Amino acid sequence: MTRKSPHLVVLTGAGISAESGIQTFRAHDGLWADHRIEDVATPEAWARDPAMVLRFYDARREQVRAARPNAAHRALAGLEARGFEVSIITQNIDDLHERAGSRHVLHLHGEIMMARSSVNPRMRYPLGRDNIAMGDVCDQGSQLRPDVVWFGEAVPAYPQACEIVAEADLLLVVGTSLVVMPAAALVDELPLDAECMLVDPDEQLSIPPGVTRWVASAGEGVPALVRQWQREGRLFVPAMP
């Protein structure tokens, strides 16, 4: 099927959600500050103390519920609403892209607003306003767990992400440093004639060859780019303002 417009693929990471007040695990304050990753975000932690893991993710879920999409989320959704073809691949487990109005969102690391069976990953359940308690079970009778990819687990959505990037005309990277694998390797899936640009406020950030840097926060840089694309009616990599 022939596409009606160039395809923008957006890879987003923790930086875009941080501007909505969601703490990253690298932050020195917030929910992760008093927890080791090994104690709350690994299969071993789940086997050792599932109740503590559930409490931790219940707290993260409440933080997500309290957050609101920011200008970057809204700009991307608005671009799609204007008829541009936009696919979002996010490393974030929140639902801010969806709440902003984006319809084509792939979550590499799962979704915190979903629960899944601890024995059958295909059995997933929307949580709505609920959390997960010990004793909440799937249809096969196994304890429910957060539908997130923990450290040490495979990333089942990665092959699909590779397929999406392979169809991109422009890859926009926002809120992620392109150093965390396997997401960083997605750049290698770009077609040879596609362009890649990174929106990040850190001028000293090391970036791969061939990536154009736009020094700005997500909330400033993404809306500015979207305004240019909407004004021109096409996708392109603009010169730095």
Rank of each mutant, 00 (worst) to 15 (best):
K4I: 04
V10A: 05
I16S: 14
I16T: 13
S17P: 07
E19K: 13
S20T: 01
I22G: 12
R26W: 14
R26L: 03
A27Y: 01
A27P: 05
H28A: 12
L31E: 07
A33G: 04
E38Y: 05
P43Q: 13
E44Y: 09
A45I: 02
W46P: 10
W46A: 14
W46K: 09
R48V: 10
V53C: 12
V53L: 08
L54F: 04
R55A: 15
Y57G: 04
D58M: 09
A59I: 01
R60M: 15
R60Y: 15
R61I: 09
R61G: 10
A66P: 07
A71P: 15
H73P: 05
A75P: 11
A75C: 12
L76W: 05
A81W: 05
G83C: 03
F84R: 02
F84L: 12
I89C: 01
I93K: 04
D95F: 03
L96K: 09
H97S: 05
A100R: 07
S102L: 06
R103S: 11
H104M: 10
H104G: 04
V105P: 02
I112F: 09
M113P: 02
M113H: 12
M114Y: 12
M114Q: 15
A115L: 08
S118Q: 09
V119Q: 15
V119I: 11
N120S: 12
P121H: 12
M123P: 00
G128N: 04
R129Y: 06
N131K: 10
A133V: 01
A133F: 08
M134E: 14
M134V: 12
G135C: 03
G135Y: 07
C138E: 06
C138V: 05
G141H: 12
R145C: 13
A157T: 01
Y158T: 01
P159Y: 00
Q160Y: 04
Q160D: 06
I164S: 07
V165P: 02
L171Q: 05
V174C: 05
S177H: 09
L178P: 04
V180Q: 10
P182I: 03
A183F: 00
L190M: 10
D193W: 11
A194Q: 06
M197Q: 07
L198S: 08
D202S: 13
Q204D: 15
Q204F: 09
R213M: 07
W214S: 05
W214T: 03
S217Y: 13
E220C: 09
G221T: 04
P223N: 12
L225K: 08
Q228N: 09
Q230F: 10
R231H: 15
P238Y: 00
A239W: 00
M240P: 06
